[in-house]
Design a protein around this nucleic acid. Structure first.
Length: 179
DNA sequence: CGCAAGATTGGC
DNA sequence: CCAATCTTGCGT
């Protein structure tokens, strides 16, 4: 069953725990469909969160985070990678969940590469889109830890345990950037 | 207008 | 350890 706007419109702290174990579904142009269990995510919540792109106020890039929950926020980073986020919460309450890993694909940029997701998905509506949506899955046990790659955000925000992941930490096998 | 840095990855 | 590669945000 596809997740609807009622699911995404709640506060990100309520949505995130339930998103673990859900199914990310991509329908490609040729009609083929791939389904992947969401197993690694990060929470970005409000302008007060110094690691969130909304911490500097509304800009052209992050504007979709100020819209209602259920939309896609994708952005280009490091000159080569697209990262996929799901917007949650209500109007003018900027928050989103970064999809960091799937059961068979770990790494936020690897996911968009594998699923062919780019800038054309900016503000895509997950509740009505015919090429990308999320289905309810089975609840899963997960671990929590600090978010990856946000050391610039200060002592408090870089240590908030807003990363949820299933199983052993996939980031430990990637180049380490934590201290 | 110039420039530094980024919610990363893969290669040396 | 470091280059790739380009948009964004901020300073001049």
């Amino acid at each position: 069953m596809r997740l609807d706007s009622n699911f995404f419109s709640r506060d990100v702290l309520e949505v995130a725990p339930e998103l673990i174990g859900c199914i990310l579904v991509r329908r490609f142009d040729d009609g083929s469909i791939s389904r992947h269990v969401i197993s690694d995510i990060e929470i970005y919540r409000g302008e007060e969160d110094m690691a969130c792109h909304a911490s500097k106020g509304k800009t052209k890039r992050n504007a979709v985070m100020y819209e209602g929950g259920g939309l896609v926020y994708v952005y280009f980073i490091y000159g080569m990678h697209w990262l996929l986020n799901v917007v949650t919460g209500g109007l003018n309450n900027p928050q989103a969940i970064l999809i960091r890993g799937l059961h068979d694909c770990s790494g936020p940029a690897r996911i968009t590469k594998k699923l062919l997701i780019d800038g054309t998905f900016y503000a895509e509506d997950l509740t009505t889109s015919s090429r990308l949506w999320i289905e309810r899955g089975s609840p899963m046990i997960y671990n929590v830890g600090p978010r990856i790659g946000v050391d610039y955000s200060g002592d408090y925000w870089k240590n908030v345990p807003w990363r949820y992941f299933v199983g052993s930490d996939p980031a430990l096998t990637l180049p380490k950037k934590n201290s």
